[in-house]
Structure formats: structure tokens, C-alpha cells
Design a binder for these strands. Structure first.
Lengths: 174, 174
DNA sequence: TCTTGATCGTCAATGATCATGACTAGATGG
DNA sequence: CCATCTAGTCATGATCATTGACGATCAAGA
């Protein structure tokens, strides 16, 4: 059997995570566009995916999303123009600014969470509630296992380096 | 509970796939670098991940990896310079060229597959063989479910739009 | 055979995204 | 008061993706 066939009939963990993340992101943004948020692109997830209702600092968003402060800055600029967030001075630190979602931003956050939840529900219905529960539990363990081995040898970097489902590029038309 | 905490304690499918893919890719390339392939970057996976031992067309690599033909072309250029692949005329079609792995390329392909397999084995040992089997089976079903819904409405695009584990950017130093 | 349309790989130009170092203002601890 | 650290921004270069076009070739039908 050829290698390319093997990768499609019995895909390894890399292919599985990649295809799933890719498809999930595509459906998420397509649905968001239908629900009134067509200007959002995957990169904006670095901010919106980790934003709290009462505001989050840009530096913390950088750490959570694994992006540079610089990138977060330009993303927040765009999201301010689009009306999703606004910058407020942090009362506890005059250097910092809190990135706070507007009503439109909170709407996107709620819809985004709901869309992903609906996708998961669809999968659970298809494979069965019990099996899907096992899937999710093992997945958390797998993610924890991998995160441990990749971040252990690093001591100087305090970045948590998580990732968000809205950060991969979408597919071309080949 | 704040949204950002919820995303870390009970992550949704998007966060799980994203963190796992991210960590998997990081470990894969770190190990590959240790085993004699330090020049490879994630983007090269669009070619090497889907390459067959007897050669594959650039257009097919584009379809399999979800990249543009243009991107595949420049990637193949780089991989030729690095000694991983070479271009040969396709005997059955004088327009096409087969991208064929060299000995060095085949070494990378074998090591890459082995590294991912070892990571999966480590996870299976931790969570138990049975649960991991369920995890993998459900994962294939989830990937198939999502792939179906995202590609169904499209009729004009023959691209298969798969994805590879070596395509995400690595994390910055914040 | 000749024509029409499609495909293969490539070139060129542009846009989008990321990485890096330096800088100002403010905080923190002695 | 002073040295040091942190938060956010600016500026710049590098990397990467997208798009349209092109010559060469193939495939199907008149």
C-alpha cells in the first residue's frame, strides 16, 4: 500500500488533528459570517478566543494565544475599528490597557462558543454519547501528555503557548 | 467562572485539536532536528507528508495538502536544494513532473512516521490501550463528520483539502 | 486531422501575516 | 532617588499565501 493511501485510510494523530482543526475552523467562520460576523478572520481568534467579559490585558492575550505582543496590538486595532472591542485604561496599572469586548464582541464570543458546542453535539450524536465522552477524556489526557513533554525543557519562557481553534489558514482553491 | 479559565479547565474541541497539533508538531520537528534533519520547517510537510516513495505529482500534493500549486512549487524548489527530493519527468504525461524523494527524503519520511507513532504509543500507554483505541476510532468519525459538512456545499472545487501535522507556525517568545 | 477546452507547472505581483529590536511611560523594590 | 523591570507601541525586514496569467501538453469531439 502506498504511503499517501495509508495516510488517508488510517491517518495518524497528526493528520487527524490537522484535518479536524482545519474543518472545524472553516465551519466556525462560515457560520459566524452567516450570523452577522463576516469581517472576522482566523487571526482575530487570538484575541476573541481568550477574552474575558470584564476585559483582559494585551500581554495576557499574547501569552494565552502564543502570539507576540505586536501581533495582539494590531489585532486589537482592527477589532476596535470593527467594533468588537475597546481599550480602557487598567485602574490598577496605568501602563496597561484592558481589552474589553463591546456588545458586538460579546455576541461573537457567545456565538462562537455555541457553534463549536453544536458541532460537538452533532459528533456525539453520531458516534454515541458514551464513546464521545471517552474520546473527550482521552483527548484531554493526550493534550496534557504532549504539552508536558514539549514545555518541560524550557525554563526561561513564561509563555503558556496555548493555541486557538481560529488560527489556522483556510484552504486554497488549488 | 471566567471564560478564559473555562477554556483551559474544560477545553472545547477547537482548543484540544489546536493544542495537540501544536505540541505534536513542536516535538516532531525538535526530534527530526536531533536526528539529522534540522533544516526542515513545518511548511515542508505539505510535500513530505504526502509524498510516495515512487513519486507524486505537484498538483496532487497541492490537493492532498490543501496548498496552492504555487506554494508546492517553491517548497519543492527548497527541498531540491536541501537534497530531499528531485524532479523527474512523468513518463505518462509530458506536462507533469514527478516529485520523487531521494535517499535523504526517504529517511525523513520514515523517521517522521516513526516519531509520530512513538508519540501515539506513549499516549496509549498512559491512558490504556482500550481507551486509546476508542479515542482513535471516534476521532476518525469526527474528522469524517466535519470533512463532510465542510466540503458538501462546494461542487466546483475538486480539492480534497486535507491537512498535515507539520503546517502550523511554532510559538513566539512573547 | 483539426479545433476546443481542460490540465500541468511556472512566473510575476501583491497582500497578508509574523518576527525582531528599540523606545516611552509607568511600576517596583531598595 | 535610583536601578530594574514590565506594558504597550513603533518601525522595519522577513516569511508566507493569494491571485491572475502564460506556454506546453493532453483529451475529446467534429
Amino acid at each position: 500500500m502506498r504511503r499517501s493511501e495509508r495516510k488517508t485510510t488510517d491517518p495518524d494523530l497528526g493528520v487527524l488533528t490537522s484535518t479536524t482543526l482545519f474543518a472545524l475552523q472553516k465551519e466556525l467562520f462560515r457560520t459566524l459570517a452567516e450570523q452577522g460576523h463576516p469581517e472576522l478572520r482566523p487571526r482575530h481568534g487570538a484575541v476573541l478566543d481568550y477574552l474575558d467579559e470584564d476585559g483582559t490585558r494585551a500581554t495576557e492575550l499574547a501569552a494565552l494565544s502564543g502570539r507576540h505582543k505586536q501581533v495582539i496590538g494590531t489585532l486589537v486595532d482592527e477589532l476596535v475599528d470593527l467594533g468588537y472591542v475597546e481599550r480602557r485604561p487598567d485602574p490598577t496599572d496605568r501602563r496597561a490597557k484592558l481589552v474589553v469586548p463591546t456588545a458586538r464582541g460579546r455576541d461573537q464570543m457567545a456565538r462562537s462558543d455555541a457553534i463549536v458546542a453544536a458541532i460537538e453535539r452533532r459528533c456525539a450524536d453520531r458516534v454515541g454519547e458514551d464513546d464521545y465522552a471517552v474520546f473527550r477524556r482521552v483527548f484531554r489526557a493526550v493534550a496534557a501528555t504532549l504539552a508536558a513533554t514539549t514545555s518541560e525543557p524550557v525554563a526561561s519562557s513564561p509563555a503558556r503557548r496555548s493555541a486557538s481553534p481560529t488560527r489556522m489558514p483556510s484552504g486554497p482553491r488549488t
